[in-house]
Design a protein around this nucleic acid. Sequence first.
RNA 1: CGGGGUGUACCUCAACCUGGUAGAGGACCGGCUUUGGGUGCCGGUUGUUGUGGGUUCAAAUCCCACCACCCCGACCA
Length: 576
Amino acid sequence: MRYQHALLPTLKEAPSDATSVSHVLLLRGGFVRRVGAGIYSFLPLGVRVLRKIETIIRRELDRAGAEEVLLPALLPAEYFQESGRWEVFGDTLLRLKDRKGADYHLGPTHEEIITDLARREIRSYRDLPKNLYQIQTKFRDEPRPRGGLLRCREFSMKDAYSFDATEEAARVTYEKMRVAYRRIFDQLGLDYRMVAADSGAMGGSGSAEFQVLVQSGEDQIAACTACEHAANLEIATTTTPAVGPEPDAVPPREQVATPGAGTIEDVSRFLEAPPERFLKSLLYVAGNDIAMAVVRGDHEVNEVKLARVLGAREVFLASANDIEKATGAAVGFAGPVGFSGRLLVDRDAAAVRDAITGANATDAHFVHVVRGRDYEGEVVDLRNVREGDACPRCGASLRLYRGIEAGHIFLLGTHYTAKMGATYLDEKGENKHLVMGCYGIGVSRLVATAIEQHHDDNGIRWPISIAPYHVHIVALGTEPSVKSVVDKLERELEARGIDVLVDDRDDRPGVKFKDADLVGVPFRVTVGAKSLERGGVELKARTEPDPKRSELIPREGAAEAIAARVRSALAAIAPG
RNA sequence: CGGGGUGUACCUCAACCUGGUAGAGGACCGGCUUUGGGUGCCGGUUGUUGUGGGUUCAAAUCCCACCACCCCGACCA
């Protein structure tokens, strides 16, 4: 592609409402333009990146035995009404009416539509298994779109749905998809982890997230430093160490005055005891009930775990008013001793044998508190895992990362097929529900995610597998000798299947170099009077930090040498 | 939905407090200059100051309402 013909509007300054790195660079690099909140146009360069990602996904899913379909984005309400999600989705569903006043919506995901297709077309065990995928535009009326392409109201997603005869067969399909996903994410050239996750409202028995490790990510992940284990912090667990002396060595419980010291930090300093000796007692509201969650002083309550234990959809920290009502003390002096409501105690908190805790009386704490003697409560896993905690699988230490969820696979079971009556006849002629799995990848989100992970101060550094072009030729000066070398190099590279962008603009070198760094094509080839005098062209990888450092490639055989470099870079991230 | 903020040229922003003909830089167009990291100079194009109403001789500026967008939180199969 010739720069002079391309729509490639780079910007020196980004609009001030762009905050995330990827958003700024996508706008500045001329990849996308904003149309509305959470709605973007893809410019030619952005489309090229999307297509590269899609190509990798299609190749691997086809290879795993899936078939591509294309379901509609505009959906009559009846399907989501049948599954109940017309209500469940709430305001996130983008609803509309046709001229007759009939209800429609734009598809946020397609379980119902594919299940309807399956119940019509799959009748016998002989038709199974089936695995269908599509790459489609999805619509969700997000309460808060943000981060440019990271969270949009309209976005591109690959979604796949598998149908099997039995749970066991479905698990085999699920495993196959897991392998396919690994191959896809490997090829995208991203640092990611496959993590165990909360299957949430989707139901079903298994799920794994594909989290791209990025400092700015919204999700937290605990990953083992030794083995493969990784889990979303929402469900991550660790093994339990016990602390403190044996129970019979603990003196009787004693109330001490701690005037004005309502935080662990205050009391810790006041009593000269480390936070690990404290029981932190937090009051939560779940529905109409109030419950106390107790964790060790240096630990944090995990609200997802708490909600699950309480059987609530979500929990909220109680207000100061509710706390005073429930404990009879000001905020900061709650404790499990004598608490009459539902009491949940984290395993590590229960293991503290000589504890300090609020006395449920303003300006007072108890010391020498022992579980079993001074309080009871249900012992459960309630806390967030911390950096350095033991891996539940191998015992090595866990590390915390931040990530962006780019893919998610679920073993759904018969959740939808039962609701929608999608059955087949087995060998004995019996009617059985199809067993389902679903598998998503956020395609447009991946464009932004790749940038969040691969950039520097000057711009994007695309992984070569998804870069809009492999080689960016910067032509300096207008001499015929430069022009002829550039023309020849472009032809020869393209003949070798290399994607080439040629900056043939009549502009100053500095402008071209800056734009090349911004756009982020992995290899830059500079052709100018100076390089030709030295006998060739200059090759520089975008990842080379020194702007002045480049490699002289002899003019003869330059195309083959550069193509070989591109091929080996591609091969380096090919799946094993 | 709760809290905070911002709407002025294509972009970044000034002028608003204290009402009096709406500006700069970048981008863009023309000329000269320069030519290996966003060159320098000269000239030029670009506005319903988010929308509607009110106050006033006079509103970008003060008042009211609405809308849009951004940030934090809630939310996120």
